[in-house]
Design a protein around this nucleic acid. Structure first.
Lengths: 153, 153
DNA sequence: CTGATATCATTTGCATACGAATGAATTCGG
DNA sequence: CCGAATTCATTCGTATGCAAATGATATCAG
């Protein structure tokens, strides 16, 4: 390992070690950038909702109603985070909360009529967001990417 | 398309449409989750720095010194975001700022001795973070993932 | 040289994210 | 049945992340 350094970075004070670690090649850095691009695409298509807000609505649409905590697990959000998301959706009357019948600790969250109407109309747009996100990839590559990303989490 | 629905979601009011869109399969959702896992791994290995802070230090280590704005571009951060990151690193004396010799708008950012010492010692740990992140993947899969992610951005 | 334009940095406002601490309610072990 | 452990939700503090507005400076067209 580390035989001949091809070309030390111009300004790196410790070119040898620095040459071993390129930030731009790290998976974490690539993940962050890919995510950024997707967020920008999302914002262009659905400016009125953030991805987490959309995820919460979409999941409620799938499962009907759940406790706030469980919804968080379904959409991969912290309890503290899902609280804020639900608060903001509630302020816009897109979701409703109710007491759990038997467990008084729980808050049952469900779509309002308005929220149901909105998410129903947005699913097509969401599909286009995914389409635009994966536009640089072939169909095969997309399937591979999805498989590998799923394997990571 | 949409021939026979195998099993409508229990509580989905519009099972047909809902069946067409599965949140958990969308690339954006998978990206967010993969990113989350990586952040958790990072925090375990390097609790004293966040990934953006580390990225800024690592990039400064590579390139020596740059303007704040350009550093932001190199590490894929908004001007407003990089400002906050540099502020916090400066508060910990890990980076230093100076006036640009000819352009009085610019702020030249560089590593302090303390910052250089820290980042030098952390590169190995950073490599372990990447290793743990891609642990579920084979070497081939990792290369593929990196290629596809790069293609996305 | 000067007015229009562009660039760099800063500030504000909003929305995730997560750790940690807290309080209320439930469940579990003995 | 009761005290301990757990679960659910809330709150606080810190840190991204971006859009938009602003001020200072630089550059460019004419």
């Amino acid at each position: 390992m580390s035989g001949t350094v091809v070309k030390p970075a111009p300004a790196a004070q410790e070119a040898a070690a620095a040459g071993e670690y390129r930030l731009d090649e790290q998976v974490g850095f690539l993940l962050r950038k890919a995510n950024q691009r997707h967020l920008a695409i999302f914002a262009r298509h659905i400016p009125d909702l953030t991805p987490p807000q959309f995820a919460a609505l979409a999941k409620l649409w799938e499962v009907g109603e759940t406790s706030q905590n469980q919804l968080g697990q379904l959409v991969a959000m912290d309890a503290a985070t899902v609280k804020g998301v639900i608060d903001r959706l509630r302020a816009r009357s897109l979701v409703e909360i109710a007491e759990h019948e038997s467990d008084r600790r729980r808050v049952v969250v469900s779509l309002s009529a308005k929220g149901r109407a909105m998410i129903g109309g947005l699913v097509e747009e969401a599909a286009r967001i995914t389409a635009e996100t994966i536009e640089p990839l072939t169909q095969r590559e997309t399937a591979t990417l999805a498989r590998l990303l799923a394997k990571l989490s």
